[in-house]
Design a protein around this nucleic acid. Sequence first.
DNA 1: CACAATACGTCAGTGTTGTTGACATTCCAA
DNA 2: TTGGAATGTCAACAACACTGACGTATTGTG
Lengths: 167, 167
Amino acid sequence: MPDNSGAPSGQSLLFLTDEQLRKGIEAMFFAYRGFTADPDRILAEHGYGRAHHRAVHFIHRAPGTTVNNLLNILGVTKQSLNRVLRTLIDDGLVESRVGAQDKRERHLFLTEKGGALEAALSEAQRGRMRTAYRAAGPEAVQGFRTVLEAMMEADMRGHYEKMKEKT
Amino acid sequence: MPDNSGAPSGQSLLFLTDEQLRKGIEAMFFAYRGFTADPDRILAEHGYGRAHHRAVHFIHRAPGTTVNNLLNILGVTKQSLNRVLRTLIDDGLVESRVGAQDKRERHLFLTEKGGALEAALSEAQRGRMRTAYRAAGPEAVQGFRTVLEAMMEADMRGHYEKMKEKT
DNA sequence: CACAATACGTCAGTGTTGTTGACATTCCAA
DNA sequence: TTGGAATGTCAACAACACTGACGTATTGTG
């Protein structure tokens, strides 16, 4: 359905030479590193890693989400996630409440302290994103988002739009 | 200081609300995972990880590069890189030659076998990149690249254009 | 020449984050 | 009610990053 053969699409370059693609691949690599650099610094001060960041991020975004829910989003094993959650709970950043209907489930919430960390991490990352967006301009941002959406796994498309609401 | 009021920049939306930025952040997260999914599968078959992929990629791109050169690009410690290089050399994917001028340096090359792995990894990743590019269209690709460049660390900008040529 | 600096490799130890395997609890349906 | 599926926890292990300390060969400099 792309059909770039019959429709030059007005613009100029969609050669897609291996060279072009290679540049895109490397840009992705370097950009992702820059993208995570600021949060990584903050996390290191607290003795945490990226796994903690991801957990805190998605709990903030969907308070009351269950462990299983988080598992599907993050794409890791429950054992791996559990270790991270345990430290966050022990440190008083996350609260785990037994489910009302289904007592097997645990619903996760950020405490005030956890919310503070989330805010710090989020602000650092938004800062870099904002700077990049401003430098690139609105049209570039639109293109950026379009390509990223096409790049992610099909079963993840839309997960960042609305997470399952099973609160 | 934002002043998105005075400079509409032609297009429409550069609101940059926290919601907009959050979507961008999550898109980056999911897209990077999709971006590395295919190579990860191939690497797992060979018992390798992403660290091996990165090494093989940059050696392919700049044959004869030195260990120190690679260190600067990858941003890891020499101990970490050395572990990876050792396995690649032992498995006959990479060849290490003593420098002609400076005998302290080791110049790295892919063997035929190493080139084959690189080609497989590269083709898998290019395939996904190509699909995303086609789906998004030329203008989107341009914007994608522009934002990524603005997002990467300043000292890495241009490294993907031309690596130091100290062959 | 003697000495410092550079480039590379290695050994030992630690931490984060992923994995499998085993297990307890809870729910649901045959 | 009983067996199985779902949910979450504990234990052990592997990959890969890190720091720190050394050893060696080579280069450059006073």
